[in-house]
Design a protein around this nucleic acid. Structure first.
Lengths: 236, 236
DNA sequence: ATGACGCTTCGGTCCCCGTCGAAATGTCCG
DNA sequence: CGGACATTTCGACGGGGACCGAAGCGTCAT
């Protein structure tokens, strides 16, 4: 690795506006067809096809054929972590359109960071888990699995030798740490499975359902409906 | 951030062989003059100058004039973390030359990961800190500051609101976590200040001094001389 | 079977950017 | 002050790659 060509190959795959848009789109955690990525990035299907091929050969995404579609997904949580680390280096973005502003507001409120919660909701849930004694405040080390199990998380099966059980992920919008790692992934998975949060179509933003609002209030004392509301904006 | 241009700007700065080599060179943690980066990357001084300008405008490095030299350094630990995260995505590198093989062996043994220890030595020290009860095994949360203070670390001043006290950093050579974060930085700083480890010129690799070998053996029970030896290779 | 649809390949165009050497600027040291 | 050195600017060259539309190839539905 003293030679830079490996790093350049991976970074170069992200280092172009169109491909970067595609990867950000995939950061929602769902697999998307090539056509959706083309639309999101604003390029022709043929152009998008080439970019997907390059992302795949760089190992950033995996592609799976499904009928006549080809579904593209991030290759793993390591990719999402690298993208998040790079995103932290970028300054704030300028708002370009009303639609972009809406979308940004929704993502600031609640979003998935590939496989775990982020945004105000993610930080709020993490803080509540610390306050309830489930997690150690600074390090986010697991202290008491009880609260998490009441959220439907199977803590034991969240253990995975390939990555730490808990990890702090610095939120680019809140500039505060939130819960990532195997446990963060299991938590989002459980909330999605229970229908407490749902993915908003066409992006990384999440929506808190009525069941989720009451459940999170009861178990964690978190006013999720307030946290996940777009400040002063319309909530779809 | 739903637009990819910010991500592309930062990733694009890393996404070119020559600039990637320069950044890897800077990952040692020392500020280097432009001429040293040019030599390391194998390009003319004028070419290197342009690349440094681009890295600076992307916010990845800072440049400080010192006499007739301009010293380039990584802009902060966030940059180092992003580069490490990207490095984890690259496969193994092929060895191109005997010199590169020597260098790689030295870096696998002991190196600085911008501001903390990495390589076999870094992992070994981290394991020993866990075994001695100073750190919590999985999360690396601080348990007992005593051992660290015997290593010269001022734990209190290592606390920094802008980043976690301890963080796990996955080692690309060992594929095992080691200690990063504010405490990891303070530890490397202390070992360098005490003269227990020293930077090898021209790279990220570290050398364990005689004082360091006996000190680490006494305080942590770590056979640092063995860990930091290049396996079967010559040790300069 | 016959479209409709999603995707890829191909050919062509254009521009960005990495590279160098030469010359200019600025700094240090006799 | 004048020569050595580090760096930057400039001009020129060449290559890689981003883009599109048209055409070809599977797959699904009617």
């Amino acid at each position: 690795m003293s030679d830079g060509s490996n790093l350049a190959r991976v970074a170069g795959a992200l280092g172009e506006r169109t491909r970067a848009s595609m990867v950000i789109e995939l950061l929602g955690g769902e697999a998307l067809p090539v056509s959706a990525l083309a639309r999101a990035a604003g390029v022709a299907a043929s152009t998008a096809s080439g970019h997907v091929a390059r992302l795949e050969s760089a190992g950033l995404v995996t592609v799976r054929s499904d009928g006549r579609e080809r579904l593209v997904a991030l290759a793993g949580h390591e990719v999402a972590e690298a993208v998040e680390a790079l995103t932290l280096l970028t300054g704030e973005s300028e708002i370009r359109s009303l639609r972009a502003a809406d979308r940004l507001a929704a993502e600031r409120a609640a979003r998935s960071c590939y496989d775990h919660l982020a945004g105000r909701l993610g930080v709020g849930v993490c803080d509540a888990l610390c306050a309830s004694g489930a997690l150690e405040p600074g390090s986010l080390a697991l202290r008491d699995a009880g609260v998490l199990e009441r959220l439907g998380v199977d803590v034991e099966s969240a253990r995975d030798a390939r990555r730490p059980l808990t990890r702090t992920c610095l939120d680019w919008s809140e500039r505060r740490p939130h819960l990532a790692g195997g446990l963060g992934a299991a938590l989002l998975g459980s909330l999605l499975e229970r229908g407490w949060v749902a993915r908003r179509p066409g992006g990384r933003a999440l929506r808190v359902t009525d069941a989720g609002a009451s459940g999170l209030l009861e178990v964690l004392g978190v006013d999720a409906a307030h946290l996940a509301a777009t400040h002063g904006g319309r909530v779809v």
